[in-house]
Each structure stands twice: as structure tokens, then as C-alpha cells.
Design a binder for these strands. Structure first.
Lengths: 204, 204, 204, 204
DNA sequence: GATGAATGAGCATTCATTCAT
DNA sequence: AATGAATGAATGCTCATTCAT
């Protein structure tokens, strides 16, 4: 499974509620998938009717599953962030802190590129700052912090930056690469970040 | 004068036209200033009425000075880009290519941060791609290319990236730093980019 | 059925699409009816909100059924023109060319009077020249031409005018009679046109 | 002098007011001339700023001479109608009532063609129904009535129409010919009206 | 539950009219 | 008196959200 780009759809939690009927479940998944594509391509600007159309459902159905457009956006972003968090957590206990850290960096930079929505979310765009997203970002930050510290302790990453600096850098890279045409620059962008994050005086 | 962030308002050229009346001049400046603030804070999404309100004028007055909202956006961005271009060009013939290059990088990263509008423009946002902006971006790219090449030839910058990679990195940094709270990370972000752009194997 | 002035509402064709829901059908009809009245009274100048208000629906509903104000106007005019064309065509093979021609003339003059919208459309008003209307006007012209020629050949109509002259005359009569008070002059206006269109030297 | 299309500008009455300064007089004339052209070409739809621009004056100057746009329109139409009235009156005592009547008809039809404004005014368009215009139209009607009656009495015009029928016919012809391209149909349109207005049974 | 029609507030833009210069 | 800048109400259109079917 790609840790960042979802191919399968997250099962909705729906705590303390009867499980969705099979067709409702399917519609919810369709809407999420359509929203992922649409938001990734055009950001929040895409009309909700367009998402409904792509999902092959009526607008009302979207609203049955997500109370507002913003909530749908949140769900899409959360899905992505959650994957990232899991992946970061899975690397937290790797044997070699350096490679684990740079592996994570690489995934973030290359996995999020071309996704306007994620870029917006990471950058804290107005509409994307709602509760759960902030929480997920904090989780991601915490997981990343572990990786960063371990790499720093191991001498694999420069010591004069903190996790917030790193998140800013990752956010920037994500935004830089969110334009379709720019996706081809992934490797160069990653290379610069990677080398810039090494401890000073160390060869690449 | 800060080469990037305008504190004074560009005197409108108005080639071969009689100068604006004093009050019109003042209102034009007010509108531009309000637009700069508003666009920087919220990007193109700000309603034009909001800009007019902030400027203390009616909506019609904004349209007297700028034929469309997009034209106003263009004017704001062009002002900034033009400053950047001038600065880049002034560094093109510096004695030491390396410092000149990194000086430019530093200015771009620290000077443009916090401006959502500029970030949008550099990133080629849909609505911000109109004629003159594209031209100004090309100019900036060309001026930056000279600096980059000279630094690469002098062995001061890594050779495996091109100007478009660099612009992507700068754009990303700009966007990452556009949030108010993130402005304090400028130095760390710059440091990583600087070190990442040095030739491999060279000490910081 | 009056061939020109609609009392019943044209059943919307909606080729190869599922029929509209009952309520939507009703609203569409209401909008069309309100638009017919409003356009007939004031021409294209009526605000769309006014039409919506008269129809008892929101402005958005009008746009759901007709993508632009112009499209609504077109629909209204097309409805009328189509009736005219059908009627003209039904007369094209009448046994007696003269009476057929003058029958058509009478219908046009008396049936279209009082309709500012139709007058505008026939006169080629700027905004009313869109695609389908032009096509329908051409159809009407062609159908009228057959009637005119047959009448001319039969010696029932003067030979020194062509179909465009005739359309100009009809258009003029339509516009002249579009004022409420003027509708009573229909008969006199028709009589003058009729006699003026007879071959010279023939008694009335 | 053309009795209908003005080459010189009517001297403004300005009762019981000191005469206008020479430059004001000139500006008033310019505005009227520009308004005549503009209204004739595009009807009331032309923006007032456009008229001011064509006249080479500021918008404020137009308002100094005419309190509203409607008043300016009125002035333009009045100028035309007044000429028509004078011409009709000058024919009222001609030796031969028949030729005098048809001469007037010819002038009206050919002189007003291509003038959207006059067509609108004669047809009683909403904005063109203000006081003085109505009065002038009544004057024109009265003058025309004399000509019509004399012609009818002399057996030169059909007896079964009244002046209001005639005005409707003239209005219609004017509107039919108000489109630029239709002006070439003047002769045919006039011929039909002329022959249609002759007494029945009389040769052309 | 699903549908998609209806709503209505919001936005960019125009233009008649007023007023400071 | 003239100018033209400023005003602000009006208009066509979009779209998030609600609701009848």
C-alpha cells in the first residue's frame, strides 16, 4: 500500500451508530474518491455539484454523508494525513534512524506532490484548519519529531532545526510541487532538501 | 528600500497621459495598498467590495482605476515582481557569483514570505496567470538563471539543478512561510535551502 | 390552437432525457409563462430577478432551466417563431396561392402584435440574434417566400417586392402594434398592407 | 434643409434665463449632436459617458445642460419631431392635397429610417414617453391629420382609416427600417404603404 | 436513503448621477 | 462653468445548502 496516496478507502468510523447499509457505504466511498480526485486537481474551488456528478450521486447524497463541503474536504485530507502518520509511526522504531528519517522525507515530498488539497491543508489554508485536521497535523508532527530527533542524535541530520522548521520545509516542497507540471521536479527538490538537512560538513 | 516588500507605493507610470488629479492619485494609492494587504492575507479570494471597503472608497472607484479584479491583482503582483527582478538584475554583475546568488536566494525567501498573493502568482495559480505577470515571472526567471549559472560555474552552487527547480524551491518556501506564524522560520528554511544548494561534499 | 400566440405551453422536447419531475415541469412552465409576459411587455430589458419573482421562484431556479437570460429569451421567441413557421408551412400547398398568402399575412400582423419581444427578435435586436433564433427566422423567411412567390406567380401579389421587403413590413407592423392601445388598429393596418401588396391596378 | 434629419442644432429655448455663454452654447450643441448620433445608432442603451466622450466634454457638462439622461433623449427626439411637425404644417395648405399627403408620408418613412431613437420614440418606448415628447407627437398627429383629411376629401387617400391608424403604419415602417441593413428597403416599404393608402379600386 | 430541484446570499461588473477640484 | 472622479444601486450569474418527491 502506498502510505500516502490511497487506493483503498478508509472505513468510516461512525461511532455508536448502526452500520451503514451496503449501498450507503458504497456511495460514501464513491463520494470520497471523487472528492479526492477533484480536490487534488483543483483545490477547494471545485463546486460540490461537480463532485457529486463525478461520484455519480445526487448532491443531497453528498450532504447525507458529510454535513458541509468543508467536512468533506476535511475527510479527504484526514484520510491522507492518517496514512502519513501511520507510516511515520511505523518508521519510528527502525534500526537506522538516518535512513528512516530520509525515507519519511522522501515519501512526504514525492507522495504529496501534485495534490493541491494536501498542500492547502498543510499550509493551513483558511477552510482547511478545522478541528480534526489540526489534530492530525499535530499527530504527524509528533511522529515526525521522533524521526527527526533520532536522526539528529545519530548525527544523520543537522541539529539546528526543529520539527516545525521541517514541517515548513515539507509544506513548501508540497506546495511547490502541487502544480501538475511541477511534479517532474520532485527529485531535484527532494535532493536539495535532503542535502540541506544533513549535518554541515558532511558529504552527500 | 526593501527590494521585495513595498513600503512606499510605486508611482504609477501612466505613460503619455496627464497625471491623475491629486485626489484620484490618493485613492488609487489607497486602493493599491488595501489590495496589497487583502490579497497578501487571503489571496484572490477576497471580495472586491472588501478591498473597496478597506480602502474607504466605493466599489466603482476601484473599477475606475483597475478595469477588473484580476487587473488589480496583476498590478499588486507586478509591483512586487518588478522589485524582485530589479534586485536580481542588480546582482547579476557582482564580483563574486556565489555570494550574489545566495544573497538573492536569501532575499527571495525572507522577503516574499507571508504574501499569499505572491505565492499564488509564483505558483501559477489559475487566475493569476494573466499576461504581464507571466512576462514578469519570465524576467525574474531569466535574471535568476544568470545568477544560478554564474554560481554553478564558480563552483558555489550544485550543478544538478536548473533554474526551474530553483524557482520551485523558492516558490515552495514562499508558500510555506506565508502563514503569519511561520515567518519566524525564515532563517531555518533559508539555511536548509542554502546548504542544500551548495555543491555536494562542501562544508557549510 | 392559435398558431402564433401560445395559450398552452409547448411541451418541452428534452430529447433522449428522462422527463422532468412534475414539480420541475411546473416551475419550468411558470418561468416560461412569466418570461413570455415580461418580455412581451418590456423586451429584454426586464431584470431576470423580476421574471423569477413573477414566476414565484428563486433566481437560481430560472438558471436551472435556462443557462442564461438570453437562452430564456430565445426559448420564448423560438416558441412563437416555431408556431409561425408551422403555420406558414401548412399554407404552402393550399389550393389558392393568393388567399393563402394573405391569410398568412393576416395571421402575422394580428397574431404577433403586442409582443415587444417578438418585434425585437424579428427586427434583429442586438441581444436577440443568437443562434437558434436566426435559424428560425430563416425558416420563417423561407416558408414565407414560398407563399409570396406563389401569390406573385398567380398574379395575386405585386411582383416588385421580395421576401425581405415583406418581412420588413411585417416586422414594422408588429412593432407598431406592440403597444397595448394600438392593438385595436390591427385591422386597419392589415387592410393597408393587404391592399398595398396587391398588384398595381387591381381593385381591392 | 432636410426636414427630418438635422444638420444644424436647434437653439435651446431656456426661457427667462440669461443667454448661455458662448462656450456653454457650443458645448450644448456638441452634446446634442453626439447624443443624436449615439441614440440613433444604439437607442437608449448607449451609456451617458459614451455620449460625453463623443462630444468631447465631461459627464458633468452633459448634466449641466440636461438634468437626466432621459431629458437628453427627449431633447434629441423633440428636435426631430419639431422638424417633422413644421414640415407637415408647411404642407397643410399646399394646392394639391394628394401629393402633399404622400410627400409627407415619403418624408416620414425615408427620413426616419435608420434612426433607432425616433423609432423608439414614435412607438412610445417606456423612457421616451415623457411630457414634451407626448405633446410633440400630438402636434405631429394633428398636422398629419390635416393632410390626411384633405387627401381623403380630395379622393386621393382611402377613407376608412384615421390618423392614428396612419401613425401606427408610419411607426411600423420606421421601426422596420431602423436596422442599418434595412435602410435599403425604404423604397419598397414606401411603395406598399403608398399603394395601400390609395382609395380602393384606384390604379397606382 | 437517494435524488436533484429550489433557494437565496454573494460576487464581479456597469452606469446614471453627484460633487470636489 | 467644466471636469472627471466617486458613488452605490442594480444586474447577471454561481454555488453551498435545504427540502419536496
Amino acid at each position: 500500500m502506498d502510505p500516502v496516496n490511497p487506493d483503498d478507502t478508509e472505513r468510516a468510523p461512525r461511532l455508536s451508530t448502526r452500520p451503514l447499509r451496503a449501498d450507503a457505504q458504497r456511495n460514501r466511498a464513491r463520494v470520497l474518491a471523487a472528492a479526492q480526485d477533484a480536490f487534488a486537481a483543483d483545490g477547494l474551488a471545485v463546486p460540490l455539484d461537480e463532485i457529486a456528478r463525478r461520484a455519480g450521486v445526487g448532491a443531497g447524497t453528498v450532504y447525507r454523508h458529510f454535513p458541509t463541503k468543508e467536512a468533506l474536504f476535511e475527510a479527504v485530507i484526514l484520510d491522507r494525513l492518517t496514512r502519513m502518520v501511520r507510516y511515520a509511526q511505523s518508521l519510528a522504531e527502525a534500526d537506522e534512524p538516518g535512513p528512516a528519517f530520509f525515507e519519511m522525507l522522501h515519501r512526504l515530498v514525492t507522495g504529496a506532490s501534485g495534490s493541491r488539497d494536501l498542500a492547502d491543508a498543510l499550509a493551513g489554508s483558511d477552510l482547511a484548519s478545522a478541528g480534526q485536521i489540526t489534530a492530525a497535523k499535530r499527530e504527524l508532527t509528533q511522529a515526525g519529531e521522533v524521526l527527526l530527533r533520532r536522526a539528529q542524535t545519530a548525527g544523520a541530520a543537522r541539529g539546528d532545526i526543529d520539527i516545525d522548521d521541517l514541517m515548513a520545509l515539507v509544506t513548501g516542497a508540497t506546495m511547490a510541487l502541487r502544480q501538475p507540471g511541477e511534479a517532474s521536479r520532485r527529485d531535484a527538490v527532494y535532493a536539495v532538501l535532503r542535502d540541506g538537512l544533513r549535518p554541515p560538513g558532511r558529504s552527500g
